[in-house]
Design a protein around this nucleic acid. Structure first.
Lengths: 345, 345
DNA sequence: AGTAAAATTGCAATCGTTTGCAATTGACCG
DNA sequence: CGGTCAATTGCAAACGATTGCAATTTTACT
């Protein structure tokens, strides 16, 4: 059966591109087509069926841009990953990536699409305003505060539908979801000390606010227990991390016997360097990580770590965001982390 | 200077929401504002500066929905991840996730935004048409063919700007980027045999077309060398994988001495199960993985694997897609994988 | 059959930008 | 000073869907 075309017979040759084309074919007005296709309105069943049939046959779908413009909402949630400290950080860090996966799940389930944007604040001061003001998204989830805490704070007052993954600070104005990093740091330090460490080190960048809090928690415990602790700064890009850790290990050999890694990723790399150097874990040196990534249970020996529940975190982010979209001014959600004792401490 | 309006003093109370508001304040027409803000057009420098100043001051940004509607392009590339076989597969599989990270990088760099959509074809037959026809994206990258080869083929003829990550088959119509899986399979089998294996097994789901090709390559080599090979089907969801592999190992104990894992993720899990059972690698059993994920160099012993260059793959996807957006009908890009010899085979 | 009420449909304005074309302004030259 | 030409600007029609309101058709009932 086929199309033919032009002035002759059969079915319409021209593709249906707009609701108006379809209306013409169906012999009704565009308004009716719109109502029929959106389902909910009051349209005669027979008309609706006819319209739907035509739409199906021609594979027609209403243009979303037009629809969204008219409806003043996009059905899209923006997810921004600011890469403040270390440009390649989060992309390779399975923590963020895993979180992203769960976010996609949750949002999809709630009927939202997800627009992903990596931002390098150093190159684009205005990233957050741009993202929000773009009119492309109904709300924003920021994954990781990076070094952008202040910028996020600035925006928070004027823009309700934003939720941030990260650390919570007394009196902050933006809504965050995250683990209690300070508590996590305490748990880690306590465990290291309990398993015999006499001198601690925090391995990782202490700039990012989440990490700073972890370190602070560890310091608090260390101070209370009279154990020394030092920070060993590390970048997060996988290429540099290995070398840096090796250097640190060289330097602290014999002086430190308990390492609290800012991240499981770092802990795993560290574990590998230790093996290279023939240092026994946990015999000579104890390690505790943070996150409890899937790999962490698979290392040799399996990693003792502080677990944050990523799936629950994602659910929390989406839940709060939806409530904010509905106008509610939600509180932050800080979940307690849990110590997972395996074999490295 | 200043705005006046309302009945009193200072700065304008009403927010600038549209280009027309701004035009009114600047005392020009909306058209001029549009031109000024888009930069490229012919507008008097002084006018432009004035307009830009006002825009900056009020934090005004043109509505993207309207702009995109008018311009008939969105600046967004859709990335679809079909979860055909195993719903939780890709989300947890670091391969896809890593690829996604690189895609985000590449697209951002080219000035595109990335809209992520997980699809469960079983629940939504129409996913690809919907995504394409939504008018939300200028082009589509499909990450993984899953079991949707045919559906993708169907669409390929009528829709140019689509590129797929996956396996290439003789005579297929859609443009893919991917590794030569069959060759990879051959490399793996050759290596296993070269390092002494006398009886092989392929560990992983053989349904997905990429995996099937890997298995086929291995079978070809095995046949040529007169070595038996069998398939041990596995799911990819991390919760089930462990148990399944354990069962397989139980069953094949002593009968198989070379395992080709469909994926590094599977290989790593397998390695762990082998350790549990006290089987020596590569002494009693050899393993080769596929992908060369970051973890793979960190296992104990480090994993021998077939490497596909994910970053290059992402670059290829984006590059081809952009060329297709420009109207070119590009060929598929199949890159040779490389054997990375470490210690498991 | 006549009429009121209910159910459908059509009309036309609207969402906020972009852009071809025409009108205006100003500069420059003889 | 008039005229020509280029540089700026304004006008108004798109882009394609949604929706309040009014007009029309059905249905229901007396």
């Amino acid at each position: 059966m086929a199309e033919s075309d032009a002035q002759s017979s059969g079915t319409a040759p021209k593709r249906i591109r707009t609701i108006t084309d379809l209306a013409k074919i169906a012999g009704v007005s565009p308004g009716t087509v719109s109502r029929a296709l959106s389902g909910n309105s009051l349209v005669n069943n027979k008309t609706r069926e006819k319209i739907e049939a035509i739409a199906r046959e021609h594979g027609f779908r209403p243009n979303q841009m037009a629809s969204k413009l008219r409806m003043q909402k996009t059905g899209v949630i923006g997810v921004a990953i600011p890469l403040g400290h270390d440009v390649r950080q989060q992309i390779s860090d399975s923590f963020f990536i895993t979180l992203l996966g769960y976010l996609a799940d949750e949002l999809t389930e709630k009927g939202y699409d997800l627009m992903l944007r990596r931002v390098i604040p150093a190159q684009d001061e205005d990233w957050l305003d741009r993202f929000i003001g773009s009119g492309m998204v109904d709300g924003v989830i920021v994954v990781g505060q990076s070094d952008q805490f202040d910028r996020i704070e600035d925006v928070a007052d004027g823009y309700l539908p934003m939720v941030v993954w990260g650390n919570h600070q007394e009196g902050q104005r933006h809504c965050v979801v995250g683990a209690d990093n300070r508590l996590g740091g305490k748990l880690a330090a306590e465990r290291l000390i309990a398993s015999g460490a006499k001198s601690l080190a925090f391995l990782g960048d202490t700039e990012p606010i989440e990490f700073a809090a972890r370190y602070a928690g560890a310091r608090e415990v260390a101070a209370r227990m009279g154990v020394p602790i030092r920070a060993l700064p590390t970048h997060l890009s996988p290429e540099r991390t290995g070398k840096e850790i090796a250097e640190h290990l060289q330097e602290i050999e014999g002086k430190v016997d308990g390492i609290f890694a800012a991240t499981d990723t770092i802990a795993v790399t560290c574990l590998r360097e230790l093996r290279k150097r023939g240092i026994e874990v946990p015999g000579q040196l104890r390690i505790v990580g943070f996150d409890d990534l899937p790999i962490s249970s698979q290392t040799v020996p399996p990693l003792t770590t502080v677990r944050q529940d990523i799936a629950a975190g994602a659910k929390g982010l989406v839940d709060l965001l939806l409530r904010r979209l509905a106008g509610e001014d939600t509180e932050s959600l800080v979940r307690p982390p849990h110590l997972i004792i395996r074999e490295t401490a």
